[in-house]
Design a protein around this nucleic acid. Sequence first.
DNA 1: TTGTCTCTACGAAGGAATTCGTATTGACAC
DNA 2: GTGTCAATACGAATTCCTTCGTAGAGACAA
Lengths: 126, 126
Amino acid sequence: MKALRRKPTDAELAILRVLWARGPSTVRQVAEEMGRESSYTTVLKLLQIMTEKRLVRRDESSRTHVYEAASSQDQTERQLVSDLLDRVFDGSAAKLVLQALAATKTTPEELDEIKRLIASRTGGAR
Amino acid sequence: MKALRRKPTDAELAILRVLWARGPSTVRQVAEEMGRESSYTTVLKLLQIMTEKRLVRRDESSRTHVYEAASSQDQTERQLVSDLLDRVFDGSAAKLVLQALAATKTTPEELDEIKRLIASRTGGAR
DNA sequence: TTGTCTCTACGAAGGAATTCGTATTGACAC
DNA sequence: GTGTCAATACGAATTCCTTCGTAGAGACAA
């Protein structure tokens, strides 16, 4: 049983996203939300493994267990970005942003939003 | 033999980074560059697998083979960012940028650089 | 030729991720 | 009690990643 901080796999991340969106959920609810790609038992197994890994918490007080993401969406997102930054971009946020802009057709609204983000950062520091 | 577009694994990415930095290289050169973490044969095996996957090209004209990254660093970076965008951020570049800024202690110089990136984007579109 | 290096090829082992089938258990109605 | 339904537990099969040991081929010196 290893303790902490591993990157969730793709399948695990898909489940986490459901849990973040729905809040605490049963296996059946998660499986249904994920459509017909994954069978009930597959989702169950994944959630069991994720419980061991402490990626989710399990409430066993009723017969039908209820699962909940152990880390917030925010924390997890940040961790994944950190990881990409380290593995790919030498820790340079600017390089990452450059590629993010290149990778998407960013709308003017989004660009404005990003500008505001930056402004709020620089504003404080100056 | 499957054809295209899979995400390089962590170990594969580490090798690609060496190839991008050094240009076409032999197994020995890559292994040395990667320090003593991975043995010669491990690097060799990975490069062989990566050749099958078409992640690298192999020049076999001399006895000592020479390997070269098949995709540019730029393309690969973009692909990895795209993947993260899809899997984690619903395709929203703004969300990703927000987390990138939160994840690093960004220097004022970097923020300025990012601002310029954005400005060049908005400037062209307006 | 024989020996020594250095290379590639190959395979095997271990571990993790993913899938799903089957068994078992608990709840509840009848 | 029995039957039925829905849940969890368990384990097997498959595939991929990663590592490394060992074998064999090529080059070259003595």
